[in-house]
Design a protein around this nucleic acid. Structure first.
Lengths: 251, 251
DNA sequence: AATTTCAGACTTGTATGGTAGTAGACGTAA
DNA sequence: TTACGTCTACTACCATACAAGTCTGAAATT
């Protein structure tokens, strides 16, 4: 049957797109780095065409920037984009939570509880990558429970802008388990139909996503777009906490 | 210079993508219609490769569906998608309006007023296509005024899902001029920093986008995904008003 | 008549050669 | 030293050829 066949889910182009997306979000390829079609083609032992198509899709996601006849580069991190994306994501998530509190699809409850258990586990062992994956799934499940079967596309599109920063800042079991607690609180509030509480918790949950942003930017200015901060737009307060000065190098 | 160079803005592929996007949104190509790479290539006198790349981008926008080795088809209209998109768009627009009421970039005021005048003109002459274009620009200007420089991407992505329906239902000067009045009201409320009024007006403005949807679906069921309406999700009340039974044919 | 098989005419996916445009090194001249 | 052409080695873009999967329909079989 294969009803939900993604566009050529088995094709080289699709596979490459996913692989490159992962590598970019995981910061294995630094923001601003060059991505030559030719080089990628030989590295993955495929022709240039699938590479090209993968890059086009990534450009549509704003993860790379194709400059014609010049080169293709991993998009730099943009403060204004991230702040906007965070704000818009909050708007979307709150709309979802509201609906979820009105009517929730109870058949999803077991799946969500299993998901929360996985979160706990990954947090315990500090497996950030696995946690982020399950975290995304949690938010998608909330959306589905609230009756939003397609919102995850918009949501994931917005999340993409902040995922790279989260990869850097979600370090250590303490940070992760704090997030799990927030998730459990939100889910409980939804099940209890406590809309004001649920929205308040979700707001708090999303608020400190960018707390560490200034620190990261300070330590790695070459990753960021230099932009006049004319647009403050809910600028997060500078965080004083120390951030591990990890530098990411290309594989 | 060319700082904001869109990815290959002059390329054949980009040009084709825009052309096909327009044709699909304007319903010149019916939902469900087949789009052969070969056929498009000969029609526009280009090779298959740029066509292919254009279709990939359109698939990323959910405007077409590529089924490997089978064919490429214009996406069907989906009730659930449209309802969700409308709801999410409202969430985003309200978030923007809130910010706009807090602090608005006054340098944009002349541009917006000029835009409103254009709306009035297009409405007067019943030029729906021009109106829709200027309408989109109005909402983008509001976003920019509120400090959102990138939100238009998310916004336009959500709008895409309902644009085809709006093309069918925005008929006649009376409907259009009503929308202009709503726009003027919203903008005035923003300038006067009347947040509750502004959000209320925006809510009303967006609420009846899908009013005519059941009628359209009744008259052209072949354009729609057949879906169990298990997800009612703010189902709009069936409208009794007569809709011109216009059938759209391929060019 | 009903079912299976198989050949062919499609479809999209991939590989590769060639083209036009860009950037940077280099030499030359002021 | 600085400014300005030229040349060369890149780049993404496009066209073409080939490969592989899918559907259709007619012919062979039951």
């Amino acid at each position: 049957m294969n009803y939900f066949a993604a566009p050529s889910a088995n094709s080289t182009a699709h596979w490459l797109k996913e692989e490159l997306r992962r590598a970019i979000v995981e910061m294995e390829i630094a923001p601003g780095a060059r991505l030559s079609e030719q080089e990628i083609a030989v590295r993955y032992a495929v022709s240039r065409q699938p590479v090209r198509e993968a890059l086009i899709s990534l450009a549509n996601l704003n993860l790379v920037e194709i400059r014609p006849q010049r080169g293709t580069y991993v998009s730099l991190l943009s403060l204004s984009r991230m702040r906007e994306a965070r704000l818009l994501r909050e708007a979307v998530e709150l709309a979802i939570i509201k609906q979820a509190c009105k009517a929730f699809d109870m058949t999803l409850v077991p799946e969500i509880e299993a998901n929360l258990d996985q979160q706990t586990l990954h947090a315990k062992y500090g497996d950030r990558q696995a946690f982020q994956s399950v975290d995304a799934q949690f938010h998608n499940l909330l959306a589905r429970g609230g009756g939003f079967l397609h919102a995850m596309e918009t949501l994931n599109g917005l999340k993409l802008h902040t995922d790279r920063i989260c990869k850097l800042t979600l370090t250590g079991p303490d940070v992760l388990s704090r997030l799990v607690d927030q998730h459990r609180g939100i889910f409980a509030a939804v099940l209890n139909r406590q809309e004001p509480l649920a929205t308040e918790l979700m707001h708090k949950h999303l608020s400190d996503i960018l707390s560490f942003l200034p620190t990261v930017q300070m330590q790695n200015p070459e990753w960021f777009h230099q932009e006049k901060d004319a647009q403050k737009l809910n600028a997060p307060p500078a965080q004083k906490l120390a951030l591990p000065p990890r530098k990411v190098s290309r594989g």
